[in-house]
């Protein structure tokens, strides 16, 4: 199947290049956009494996929701590009050295042992649906893991609130219950005054 292979290398190439750009470009907005591109390429590779549900979820959830939030946050934070770049040149030699060492090691391991290729998984029939399969497994075989994932999300909420919520006694706010219960004495003061005519 050469067309699949060509597509695979195309999407993989785009994925690797865009992932590389995420960490090398200076502008955080551009980095976020490159991240979107890399998610998109990954979704396309999944599509080649016929994992259509995962591919669509990746695009909908990550590209659609998470990355939009990311962009919002990046825009609001007003990151100084210059200060982020600071020290880049200083750490560059060490970084390149480590990266080169790792690349050589990985290459040696793969080269000496040789890499067998994995076959493409056989396609399923037309009636097969990933969506229903995942749904079924999630609520039967992986129910325990699913529940724990729910607890992890609960902890994330608690942690986010605990770390950001502050009680500010000085801020002014309305208390409707108190407004309704207000009495006349609290708002109205009757002052005895001499009328103007008496003085004369």
């Amino acid at each position: 199947m050469p067309i699949i292979e060509i597509l695979f290398y195309l999407f993989s190439g785009v994925l690797v290049l865009s992932a590389l750009s995420v960490i090398t470009v200076g502008n955080p907005i551009h980095a976020a956009l490159f991240l979107i591109l890399s998610f998109f390429s990954a979704a396309c590779i999944w599509m080649l494996l016929q994992a259509e549900f995962l591919a669509i979820t990746l695009v909908l959830v990550y590209v659609g929701a998470v990355m939009v939030l990311f962009l919002f946050v990046v825009m609001m934070l007003d990151v100084h590009v210059a200060s982020v770049r600071e020290g880049f040149a200083r750490y560059l030699p060490a970084g390149v050295l480590v990266a080169l060492a790792m690349a050589v090691q990985l290459f040696l391991v793969i080269w000496t042992r040789g890499m067998e290729t994995m076959p493409m998984p056989a396609g399923e029939g037309d009636e097969y649906s990933h969506t229903s399969m995942i749904g079924e497994l999630l609520y039967s075989e992986y129910l325990y893991a699913f529940e724990i994932a729910a607890v992890v999300l609960l902890v994330a909420i608690i942690a986010a609130i605990a770390l950001t919520h502050r009680r500010r006694p000085e801020t002014k706010h309305q208390d409707p219950a108190r407004q309704v219960r207000v009495k006349r004495d609290e708002r109205l003061r009757v002052v005895k005054m001499k009328s103007e005519g008496e003085e004369a």
Binding site: I148, A149, V152, V155, A162, L163
Partner: peptide
Amino acid sequence: YLGLELLTLSSYA
């Protein structure tokens, strides 16, 4: 993995 994440996420906070 999930148990570990639950533990470490709470620890970060």
